[in-house]
Design a protein around this nucleic acid. Structure first.
Length: 442
RNA sequence: GCCCAGGUGGUAUAGCCAGGUUAGCAUCGCCGGCUGUCGCCCGGCGGACCCGGGUUCAAAUCCCGGCCUGGGCGCCA
């Protein structure tokens, strides 16, 4: 009898989730569908922990009180098989949850092979590499799954927030035609009889779109062909971007702050159970976040005995020092123009300083943004200064002749944000199927 | 790309420094036993030294190269 059997289909309509099996249901007959999380065979008494998306509940089979066919089915069970259990809920103080289901019938809907590569109960620990090689089994572990349930809630909270604030969610191309933007290495792909590249950022498109929608946001995948090997870089990642017309860096920093607070509040108020599963005690950060300038950061480093030449960018060791001093979220602003891309606006007072900012969490860079250049001629000049050919940017430049307002925006690394929220230390743990220098499967 | 550490049953590890044992422990899988487990327990069985080369009477162990993994750094719109 399989899932397609008519009686199983009927039973599915009266399905009760494992997480909904409560002592109050005492005496009620239930149909449970899920996976065999654990089997404890005591002989005439067999305990099965049944796991579904909602949680885990205990089913007990009294072997002398069920039919022979059920006994055979129970005896032949393997861990992680997909099953259908019919039983009766009983209040049971001897069970940890105070309730269990006395199993009457058991149907194996999808048998799992006996010797799994990974143990979804987590009794035997596994290294990250082994976990990622057998990712689906790894994801069945409640704690691992919780990372992505939180991730889904973060996405929801962010979208709610953006809509509330009047942002229009847009989708820009991930296949692009020119590799002239500079910076990170691009992945090449065959595009009919030409070469195309995978997008590494929506930057130019989102700026252009502010002249249409004023406030745009995008949550999308980007690709960087860097040979990086760290716990916070992967070659395919998700970026949360906004761009806003008639706004400067301070306006969008406020948006970013509010977003971070909104996401925290959503999780803390509505999803404590997920946070508990992750062992995370999350607190809603207070606004405004600490803000200091690049120059002030240099001073802080100097006071810690680290001398940095003005204009030099921070290395990871420098950020670790700052992160030790400033726990939680904070902004570093006004980076040297030199270290920023061509589209970042210089300050009026000093062209060597830019209207830019990074959002940090301890030593981890989460987001960066700033006021953008909105003047056509300045943009053209800055392209040249960065050694880029303005002719290659004609599609972009021409928009700046169509009435370009002052605008600002930022990009936030979604997985890095999720690392912070779920307290994971390797970014690969926050991606279902991570792609890095050496990993292209599964 | 660089530095450090590592690669032993499906998983996680001990053994390696100081070469020679039946390669140990746990989990896992199979078989048997158990009516209150909740990391169930008890007994039996099964399964492994990353690849290539070298040194040696003898290599999991020492040396060289490769591949891969973890951590750190760099790179990084």
């Amino acid at each position: 009898m399989g899932l397609l059997d008519e009686s199983v289909r009927m039973a599915l309509r009266g399905r009760v989730l494992a997480g909904d099996v409560k002592p109050e249901l005492d005496g009620k007959g239930v149909n449970l569908f899920g996976w065999v999380h654990e089997i404890r065979d005591l002989g005439k008494l067999v305990f099965i922990l049944l796991r579904d998306v909602s949680g885990i509940c205990q089913v007990v089979f009294r072997m002398e009180e069920v039919e022979q066919s059920v006994r055979d089915a129970v005896r032949g069970l393997t861990n992680e098989s997909a099953v259908f259990v019919e039983g009766v809920v009983v209040k049971q103080p001897r069970s940890k949850l105070g309730v269990e289901v006395v199993g009457k019938r058991l149907t194996v809907l999808g048998r799992a092979v006996p010797k799994l590569e990974l143990d979804p109960t987590g009794k035997v620990s596994a290294g990250l590499d082994a976990r990622l090689r057998h990712r689906i089994l790894d994801l069945r572990r409640p704690e691992v799954r919780a990372v992505f349930l939180v991730g889904s809630q973060v996405l929801k909270a962010m979208r709610d927030f953006f809509h509330m604030k009047g942002f229009v969610e847009v989708r820009t191309p991930k296949l692009i035609g020119s590799a002239t933007e500079g910076g990170a290495e691009l992945f090449e792909v065959k595009y009919f009889d030409r070469v195309a590249y995978l997008a590494q950022s929506p930057q130019l498109y989102k700026e252009q779109l502010t002249t249409v929608f004023e406030k745009v946001c995008e949550i999308g995948p980007y690709f960087r062909a860097e040979a990086s090997h760290t716990g916070r870089h992967i070659s395919e990642f998700t970026s949360v971007d906004i761009e806003q017309a008639f706004a400067d860096m301070y306006d969008v920093m406020d948006v970013l702050e509010e977003l971070v607070v909104h996401v925290h509040r959503h999780l803390v108020e509505n999803h404590q159970h997920l946070l508990q599963m992750l062992g995370v005690n999350l607190r809603v950060p207070k606004r405004p976040f600490k803000r200091f300038t690049y120059d002030e950061a240099l001073e802080i480093l100097r006071s810690e005995g680290v001398e940095l030449r003005w204009g030099e960018d921070f290395g990871t060791p420098h950020l670790r020092i700052l992160g030790k001093k400033y726990t939680g979220y904070y902004f570093i602003t006004h980076f040297p123009t030199e270290s920023k891309p061509f589209y970042i606006q210089e300050t009026e007072k000093d062209p060597r300083v830019s209207e830019s900012f990074d959002l940090m969490y301890q030593w981890l860079e989460l987001a960066s943004g700033g006021t953008r250049v909105s003047d056509h001629d300045v943009l053209e000049r800055k392209l040249r200064e960065k050694g880029l050919n303005p002719a290659m940017f004609e599609d972009h430049l021409k928009v700046f002749r169509y009435g370009m307002p002052v605008h600002a925006g930022w990009g936030l690394g979604f997985e890095r944000f999720l690392m912070v929220l779920t307290r994971r230390t390797n970014i690969r743990e926050t991606v279902l199927f991570p792609r890095d220098r050496f990993r292209l499967t599964p």
